[in-house]
Amino acid sequence: MKVALAQISPRLGNVEKNFDLHLKYIEKAKKKNVDLLIFPELSLTGYTLKDLVGEVALSPDSNPIFDELKTASRDVSLVFGFVEEKERGLFYNSAAFLSEGKIVHIHRKVFLPTYGMFEEGKFFAQGKNFHTFSTPYGNAGMMICRDFLHYGACYLLFAGGSDIIIVISAAPGRGIQGKEAYETSRMWESMGETISLFSTAFLIYCNRVGFEDGKHFAGGSFIYNPMGKLVAKASYLDNEFLLQEINLNDIREVRKKWPYKRDDRPEIILEALKRIISKYED
């Protein structure tokens, strides 16, 4: 299976220009016979939207841009980020998986960072679930940026049976004392290695680049295989089209050796969580 990551820098608040940018990468992917092309978080809109959130929101069921992307997904499956108006006046930071001309799944970001330089909770409604869904390539699950740093979210995709975990991100870099990258890049890579290894699943992380209001998105998109090995890595600060062939049979092979999936007991976890929650004080 051929996967491509579009490590791009969207234009802030301009859906039409970003749609054109998506089409450009889709053309590129088609020429290379890519099966699945992945864009970063909020790739159709840019990240630092603030009050623009309502202006750039789309309803997937009745939107010409969505229709065109659905059509494009007949040739190449797509994952991208957008602002979704699900219920009227409620806006979600969402990720769509389109394939064979249809919407396969939409994930709505659950963990909205709202501290320091982040203010997503001020502008977005919170998603409520982490689904595993079936795709032409196997079971997949999606997370958006900060979701991925909550290992409970990763566990839900593992328990749900995801063979491919896709994370789309708009992560700004921080820390300039490191070797060749922002110090925070290591945090994502460390999660990538750990979650792929212990979920025995492919972990695909697509981040963006460029500046918005001085925030510098740190790139460094990557793919880890189900053995926890890095198989592809994009540059840290530059636009890139990262193309990688992955072998889905790796999942089967590694699970023979490391039966974490077979031995998982979600019912025990669930009961234990219920007991923890029941002790919450009013």
Partner: peptide, 10 residues
Amino acid sequence: DFLFPFDWDK
């Protein structure tokens, strides 16, 4: 609460 980004449409 009139909150727009510096890099609006940039």
